[in-house]
Design a protein around this nucleic acid. Structure first.
Lengths: 198, 198, 198, 198
DNA sequence: CATGAATGAGATTTCATTCAT
DNA sequence: GATGAATGAAATCTCATTCAT
């Protein structure tokens, strides 16, 4: 029957959210704990009460990011029926996420850069992409088996699929006006589905 | 450019080289001027003699990086004769560069991340990709005109080409064993040339 | 004494006990209230309920320490009959205490060091040793009067007695294997009684 | 021909000296780097320029302390001729040091207390006393061999000698007025030499 | 040209203490 | 009585930059 119980998880989430916005705004290594505290509307001490240190906090932000994207992709893929639809679901899920919140990709790139110094982050990045490739590979293999796609190496096409998505979004965050993101998404589908169907 | 150019270009180049290695090793925002001084075998003071400040130095490193890659691509493209060969020259140039020196891409990603905070870097990144897209677009347009490629939007295919290259290399730096880079290069050619030839 | 005494003496005693163990383990100024709370199995808040602040708590630990040792010595001395036996009782009491619990001396040294900053502690330390010297002096004077000991300055021999005990135990806590504590005790008796009997 | 060369060792020594005074004044764990900086008349940064961190600095202070005392004892012992004179030289050296600078012992006790937490300090303390015991043991053994002292265990008497010295000085720093330090020194000689000669 | 000692602002982190529940 | 979330002051440490020599 202790007081304030139940506040903790909410407060944790708030701090993670605030940190996400700060990273998007100023970049991973330019934020101070004070920035985060101000943004979350709490005192500096509170952040260390919930997170052992800066690295722990940032890792939590990254985990939430990945969990969100994973969930979004999974839900979209689940709803799709045929393998081609599922491939498009993956593509659509990522492009949508970026389109609806450009910060998403900005923060992701920041995490990429930090992984040089942080082995845990490096491993997390590696496993994230491995997971996406694995998902894509499974769908493509299924498509080949069921006659939707031509005979090819599913693993390699999976890498290309993930690569094409990331490659487009990267270019886009540096220059939003370079091309239209919706068209980039269609182009991705066209190229990958085109390649798979012959 | 930067001040005091011409005083001792060799020393300048050495410092830039040392900085490049340091970034690759520890990441942009984890290096100290002391790290760089140690790596270059000079005193801390001397770095400030050649570069106004840390940002100036890092920008010089970035400029050199881009200049190197630009030159490498240009030389390879020049040697190619037909548009398809030229497209493959671009692909080959980048993949080769990464393969021969993984640090290259690592440092590049680091610069990407820093551009959130640094408008000059953001602009430099944007213009780099714009330049590559422009080069690719020109070649593709030429290919369409000369009947090598099917009718399509050269700009969009150019974006896809650059995106696919970057997407592959990004995945690779997180996990070298995820796939073979030479095969990724072939896959890129296959997908893009396949798409262009229908 | 301290406020709120009598509210729950058992809880108070538990906290003092836990604090004693923490000091022995990590040292006076390296412990946090959290350490103590964890060790006592209570919440941080409760400590401040029983003790105004950290200093008050630490002083209580010191007081208990001294009270324990005083009682132990008094009981042993009381049981002894002749002055030489009483001198040996003092020696035996302290050595026994240290032997049975090395932490005892470790914590004591820690309190010594803190007295530089804390006048109350300084006074407490001074009075503790004054008390022991006084006790020893009284016994020695009695021994001289009753013909057990040769004519000498009881106060000075008392200082030497206390000094020899402390000097041995100090060396021993730094290196248990330097010498055997039982033999050190015998040596103390031999030297002091030998000196007193000429 | 670089400037300011030669300043470094002097500055290092100054900081060590200032730290020593601060410890004597406020105690090991109550000093801040700012206190030391102020006392040394330099900026906070300078201290970290010369010493990696607080622990490193404090260890340097301790080393200097020990080095000073060691040298002082060695010089006095060297000048003495017979074993009894050498024993008195050890006793005199330590008592003199404390008498001429009470801070010496205060700081030493502080280091003792810190050794609970710091294994390096613990080892240093242990080795310091082991060294003193070894020196005393050698002298006593020599004295026995040459007929100056009665047959006895030199190691145990050495421990007693060191113990008696430390025990006296400890009591004295808590209460200067408890007894006269010169008389304590004489008492130490009387007791130890008395014991050794019969 | 070159050095490296010095600075000082600012970052992370710790922790005794308070207080609403 | 008891909890643990919250505070904020203060401590350690880092580091780009300056500058006398």
């Amino acid at each position: 029957m202790s007081p304030k119980v139940g506040v903790a998880p909410k407060r944790r989430a708030e701090i993670i959210e605030a940190t996400f916005f700060c990273i998007a705004l100023k970049g991973y290594s330019n934020i101070t704990m004070q920035d985060i505290a101000d943004s979350a509307g709490v005192s500096k001490g509170v952040i260390h009460y919930y997170f052992r240190n800066k690295e722990e906090l940032f890792l939590s932000v990254f985990e939430k990011l990945v969990r969100d994207l994973d969930g979004h992709i999974a839900r979209k893929v689940e709803r799709a029926k045929t393998p081609p639809e599922k491939v498009c679901a993956i593509i659509g899920a990522v492009f949508e996420k970026i389109r609806e919140n450009k910060k998403f990709q900005v923060v992701l790139v920041d995490f990429w850069a930090q992984s040089t110094k942080n082995p845990r982050l490096m491993a997390a990045n590696a496993s994230q992409y491995a997971r996406y490739r694995h998902l894509a590979k499974k769908i493509i293999a299924e498509g080949i088996r069921d006659g939707y796609f031509k005979e090819c190496d599913p693993a390699r096409v999976a890498s290309a699929l993930i690569g094409l998505i990331e490659g487009f979004t990267i270019q886009w965050i540096f220059d939003e006006k370079a091309f239209d993101l919706v068209r980039a998404q269609k182009m991705t589908e066209e190229i990958i589905i085109g390649f798979l169907k012959e």
